[in-house]
Amino acid sequence: MSGSFPSTAGLIVAQIRYQLLLFVRVPVGVFFTLALPLIMLVIFNALFGDVTVMTDGGEWPMRQFYTGALAVFAAVSATYTNLANMVPIRRDEGVLKRWRGTPLPTSVYVAGAVGSSVVIAAVGVVIMLGLGVVAYGLEVQADKLPAAIVTFVVGVAAFAALGMAVAALVPSASAASAVANATILPLAFVSNVFVAIQDPPRWLALIGDIFPLKPFVTSFQDAFNPLVEAPAFNWPELGFIALWGVGGAFVAVTRFRWEPSAGGTTRRRRARTPASS
């Protein structure tokens, strides 16, 4: 009568589909994750697209710079920002606790959340690059595509892990959204996402260099930078990003919580005050 459990692969696919369904039903998430980087791409290119930008590789058109940068920004929004926001919301709602009480292995739930964020990131990147090719003369070179794909995979894996780490550390959903935005937005400004920083002050360059966003952005841009020759793999940067990812995964695994902090139990315990005495 017992039969066997549904296959893990099937369960993961079901979880990813369900997380994607939830994603498209939260319009604000769709807007900030997919629409906003797209709007920025259009506006930035309208304003600065025709100038050229000097980076380590040499001088190249700004519109190609922006396409790669904002594609990475969309990928980071889909993984880091999205997970750091949504997982604490589900925890505060008690959804995580409910899943914890079912036979679904907890690793499958996490795989569904992370996997769906990677799918959203891929969709975001493809849309950005597509617009770049159609509207802004972005050149996609086949021999540099492997580098672009590997960089994408390493980058989204690391930022998904960091998003889960933030989700594990923050006490509540409201704190999570503040922390996620307060970390990623300033960092994006010093990481060549919104502006191509030329000759930055030392301290600003240093901040960009010690966090994993700038290496992600520059490595991905290189795959679309006409001045960089194939295969365009930046192994030291990729290793650095991966290291951050491993650190994030360690924090996420060791500090993850399935229940809202205090909240429920405090309320129950507080109710112990005698009613009739």
């Binding site: 459990f5 369900y18 369904l21 939830l22 039903r25 939260v26 589900r90 709602e93 008690g94 959804v95 606790k97 409910r98 009480g101 079912t102 036979p103 429920g264 129950r268």
Partner: peptide
């Protein structure tokens, strides 16, 4: 064990979007 028990908690949410 979790396959053979059903849990109705006092405080637990369900995804409101579903």
């Amino acid at each position: 064990l979790r396959d053979r028990i059903g849990i109705v908690l006092q405080t637990s949410g369900i995804e409101p979007e579903l």
